Amino acid sequence: MGVTIKDIAKIAGVSYSTVSKALNNSPLVKPTTKNHILKLAKEMGYEPNFAAQRLVSKQTKIIGLIWPTIERVVLSTLVTNISNEIRKTPYSMILSVESIPNSLETFKSFQVDGVILFDDHIDISIEPNNIPILIYGVAEKESHHSPIVDANHKQAMLEAITYLHCELGHTKIAYIGDFSKTDRMQMEKLNGFKKAMDNYDLSIDTHFLVDTNGLDWYDGYHSVNKLLEGSNRPTAIVGGSYDISGGIIRGIKEKKLQIPDDISIISYDNIPQMANMEIPLTSIGVPVNQLAAEIVQSMIELIENKTLNPNVRKMIPKINIRQSCGRINKIAD
């Protein structure tokens, strides 16, 4: 027979309930007592009985995450950070790369306590169910009945244009991104760019709005080549994502243009990899570690309180200034 909580309590000289609280990381147990109990549990080879815990608490301490794609670096980085954040809690995480309906059915069979859903497509339909669902997406969709963590794409675009125009003097600014009308997050970026340009009374040359028709490296590479074919060249480019911007940088360099002396570039997304690109990339977006922490914290709050207040949590984008942007007077010279 395995080691039980009562065995640990006897050795530790504390009550059964104290051991239970310590193993569940309760703040009601003094840190010194908690550390002593955890050390004893490890030394004695204690293995938690999840089935028994579930019967008592009515919880599995499992969170399901529906992963939209394994191909994009940014989403892989975000999922990794979410996993790291969950490991800091009493919860565990399981992933599904199936469709949303199939994933939800799978999670029901596992009796997960809650589901994190990446909502990037307008045609997503979620049938009512009794599993708490937290959405990472865009808050403006009126049909959502679940709480939302919103990375605030429009604010990010405003910050990008404010930096390029007000601090660096750029007026000829292009946007390269995916204009897919079925992808809510990408449409938020495009609309945010247009609104930010209008906010500063900056005209947008139609040639400066380039649809990548995708979110891969090659999509950015091919699109910037189209942008640079004409004689009317922008002095700055806003890239719609990390992967797209990697292709933009390669395309600019192949045209024998210098970054930022000939063209500045700022990219949406805020992951550590952007500092290590061939041109360290100025970026705008919610830092991925902060986004992951908010998603996990909100998910657990929703599970344990059965509600989330406020129901929509908009994050604050942050700009990371690196070597890919320069002042317009330097470019003109």
Rank of each mutant, 00 (worst) to 15 (best):
A52N: 10
K306M: 13
P101Q: 06
L134I: 04
F118L: 09
Y221H: 08
Y46T: 06
T4N: 00
K42Q: 13
Y200C: 11
E127Q: 01
A52Y: 09
R327G: 06
Q323G: 04
P234L: 12
I173V: 09
L75A: 01
T77V: 08
I148C: 05
M274V: 01
I161L: 01
T106Y: 15
M93W: 10
V296L: 02
I94H: 08
D269E: 00
D261Q: 12
I122H: 04
V115L: 04
S15E: 07
A196Y: 06
V73F: 03
P132T: 11
C325T: 10
S26A: 13
S324Y: 11
S180K: 14
G247I: 07
E294H: 06
I94S: 07
Y163F: 12
D333R: 14
G246S: 07
W217M: 14
W67C: 10
S298R: 03
P147E: 14
Q111P: 03
L28N: 04
L168D: 02
M157K: 06
K195T: 14
G230F: 12
M1V: 02
G177F: 08
I252Y: 11
Y242K: 02
L65K: 05
I62C: 09
V29T: 05
M1L: 05
R72H: 15
E85A: 01
S109K: 15
E142A: 02
I295L: 10
V112H: 08
I66F: 06
T162H: 15
S92P: 04
T69A: 05
L227H: 00
N199E: 11
P272D: 08
